[in-house]
Computed example of a mutant assay.
Amino acid sequence: METFLSYGVTYIVTNSTSIATLVAAIYGIFIKRSTRRLSVRAVLLCQSPQSTLTKSDINEFLCGVYREDSCDWLCTQSSVDRNYRGPAREAFHIDLEHESMLHEDSLRELPIRDICSKLVGVHTFKGRGFWIVPEQAAEDLDEVDRLFGTCLILMHLRELYKNVGDDERTPDKHISHVIQRFVDEFGMYAEYLSKENVIDTLEVIQDAELEKMVKVLTKHMKRDRIKSRR
């Protein structure tokens, strides 16, 4: 309706159907973008063979991880990756959409950090064991998906640090051990931590140990890249 009105008003003012059509098209795109809900893409890696996880299953899982808190996220799509080759038995691509916040909202980082804190770690749901990671970093990912990926991978790193026993190692050796575990389990997603926005995310999280591990991991990744070029 708004697009039709913009066409009519522009035509009356300019008496040009071409200009009116162009203005209406641009206005329609603007309206569509401004009302687009906040959404992120993730991958659910399942260790259980022959698993089937529907949108309803994912939504039930989300309600479970939020427990008493209200869950404002909905799974709008779930599809199995037939071409997946990796450490898990199966992979499911899922789209999660926030019920009220818009994609362009300046406060979008708050619900993104919140859901990442719920998705981190290994989960068990209806007898299925799985963990959740972002889509692999690629050029076509938008700013929101990069933010989501960076935040989720950072929290996976912090979770490893908290849960991996130090076995009486020195702090530096413990960090090195955690980094190696992280590279083994999440190495293909480490590229998220080399992006500029990781600095902003770390400033918000305010975790000195996590920041130290990211610096060590960055050096590790840089060293590996140099070796691969030789």
Rank of each mutant, 00 (worst) to 15 (best):
S51T: 10
T52M: 10
T54W: 04
F61Y: 07
L62E: 04
G64E: 12
V65Y: 04
V65K: 00
E68W: 12
C71Y: 00
W73R: 05
S78N: 06
S78Y: 01
N83Y: 15
G86T: 00
G86W: 03
E90Q: 09
I94L: 02
E97K: 11
H98G: 11
H103W: 10
E104I: 14
D105I: 05
L107N: 14
L107M: 14
R113P: 00
I115N: 02
K118H: 08
K118A: 02
V120C: 08
V120P: 00
G121I: 03
F125Q: 11
G129P: 02
G129D: 11
I132T: 03
V133S: 01
V133P: 06
P134L: 04
Q136L: 12
A137H: 14
A138G: 04
E139M: 13
D140I: 10
E143Y: 08
E143L: 13
V144R: 09
D145W: 04
D145S: 03
F148E: 00
G149K: 01
L154R: 04
M155L: 15
H156E: 03
L157N: 06
L157S: 08
E159F: 15
E159W: 13
L160V: 12
Y161L: 11
D166G: 09
D166S: 11
D167Q: 02
D167P: 09
E168T: 14
K173P: 00
V178M: 02
I179A: 10
Q180Y: 06
R181G: 00
R181I: 06
V183P: 13
V183S: 13
D184S: 11
D184Q: 13
E185R: 12
M188F: 12
Y192W: 07
